[in-house]
Design a protein around this nucleic acid. Structure first.
Length: 269
DNA sequence: AACGAAACCTGCGCGC
DNA sequence: TGCGCGCAGGTTTCGT
């Protein structure tokens, strides 16, 4: 499901709902979501949520002593409700607050992950350890260097969260279209000027998408019933067979490293 | 070292 | 209607 703008939308929504709340206990209905030893995970009980941050596609709940890291992967989402309300199918983790409200984690495909890590270590171990910078926080030269040393397709490089974080399949397609770069171009063959176009396009796309609450194509909802509006701004992704908004030639769909990829082969060189 | 394929899961839409 | 197949906005692991 979510890429950076969707996760940011979830973060902002959650902030309004759970900041300052104390976690009484957590019910785990599907254990594989929890990547921390289950006994250690119980340390979450009694801690207060002081802040919710985000790095790339990771949600970061700052608690008293620990940090709860959540990755939604393809279809993770939250529901917020009262303790007595029914737990529905696909709700795998239930966070009970001391005021008897609950936050449930819903994930049809069960790909999502949660880690509980001590505050002083969460950047140095676990899922954030090797996470690359977001498009907003690296320079043209830095990205050029990272791209230039790799021979694989630019699309695969931009999807690699160790290189640059936050982009997924939708926003990479949109970024490369706006930068007029073909997704199968090899990293080591791109010029500084071309990489710069990519970086600026990525920043622009992500900012616009955040301002519109993300993209709802199939299953994404920031919370129950909260949809994004960036799908109205998509120029190529999901537009197979439709005319390119710039040149009018038809958008094609191809596979790049196994991912469905939309491209205007006239505009993107 | 670097790359591609498979794996992790479930549901949906399509063609027959 | 029913079945099988391919596909889905992500990431890690395994094999070459």
């Amino acid at each position: 499901m979510p890429e950076l703008p969707e996760v940011e939308t979830v973060r902002r929504t959650l902030e309004h709902l759970v900041l300052g709340k104390r976690i009484d206990r957590v019910t785990i209905l599907y254990e594989k979501i929890i990547q921390t030893d289950l006994l250690d995970f119980e340390k979450i009980n009694g801690q207060v949520i002081h802040e919710i941050k985000r790095m790339g596609k990771h949600l970061i709940f700052m608690l008293d002593h620990d940090v709860l890291l959540i990755h939604l992967r393809m279809e993770g989402r939250f529901f917020y409700k009262k303790e007595h309300q029914e737990i529905k199918k696909h709700e795998h983790v239930i966070i009970h607050f001391s005021d008897h409200d609950i936050l449930t984690y819903h994930d049809v495909r069960k790909f999502g992950t949660m880690h509980l890590i001590p505050k002083d270590k969460y950047l140095d171990e676990g899922p954030l350890k090797l996470l690359g910078p977001e498009p907003s926080s690296l320079t043209e030269d830095e990205l050029y260097h990272k791209v230039h040393i790799r021979k694989t397709e630019i699309k695969a490089i931009l999807l690699d969260q160790h290189v640059i974080s936050g982009l997924g399949n939708i926003y990479v397609d949109e970024t490369l279209f706006r930068a007029k770069i073909h997704p199968t171009r090899k990293g080591n063959e791109l010029s500084l000027e071309e990489v710069t176009r990519i970086l600026y396009a990525a920043r622009e796309v992500l900012l616009k998408a955040i301002s519109l609450g993300g993209t709802t194509i199939r299953t994404f909802e920031a919370m129950d019933g909260v949809h994004g509006r960036f799908q109205n701004e998509l120029l190529v992704h999901t537009k197979e067979g439709e005319p390119c908004p710039v040149c009018g030639n038809l958008i094609i769909k191809m596979k790049v490293k196994g991912r469905g990829t939309y491209v205007c082969e006239t505009c993107q060189i």
